[in-house]
Amino acid sequence: MSDLNSVSNRRITISIYRSESRSYVDYTVPLEDGMVVLDAVRYVQEFIDTTLAIRWNCKAARCGSCAAEINNMPKLMCKTRIDTLPDKIRVAPMGAFTNVSDLVTDVSENYMINRQIPEFKPDERAERPWRIAQIDVDRTKEFRKCIECFLCQDVCHVIREHKADYVGPRHVVKVASLDMHPLDTLDRSEFLNREGGLGFCNITKCCQEVCPEGIHITDNAIIQEKERAVDGDYDPLLWISRKIRHNR
């Protein structure tokens, strides 16, 4: 039991963004084995300065509340072990969203976007209870791992630097998860392309790089939706064939 109870003298310094002074403030906290950044930040909040605003819930990388920028990379604080970081640790709030206080940002726009994505619309003729093959579940299953941490939205340069009318990677994943449901009857790629600004995405794959759940956002969701949008909006032969069928 020695390593559990030993009082270690190891300490680390962590510098955290404070919105009041608009600057980074250094705090020194005791270091434990296997400690993650959230442990250190919580220690600061609980025992050094209780006014530090942070957002966290499960501490198990399942809720996606504690997204922040650690040494300039968007990451979950609860999933970033301190022993994987260099000596200098800097924690900043997500930069793509309006800052509320310290490490807390206003992510409410994401819920507003979700509201506008057409809902799941199952095939009403399907016999109940539904029979669905496992092979048809597997693809959409990947997207349903999303914990809505919005790190992909944060890292996306279209949103962060250009503030363009693009729904963002998280919501393309959402659309893909609905579209690829075997019993869903809608095709949301046209919505994505015309209203969702899918064209603004230039597939630079940063979203895929930062996803803590390892979802292949670009390859499996965005590009697939782009190809579906090509079917509907760009492919000249498909366009002509649709016209002909329509006229008949």
């Binding site: 029979r131 669905i132 093959a133 579940v137 449901h181």
Partner: peptide
């Protein structure tokens, strides 16, 4: 809209 893992029969 929730999905579940399926049996071989699709249940």
């Amino acid at each position: 809209g929730a999905i579940f893992d399926r049996t071989d029969e699709g249940k």
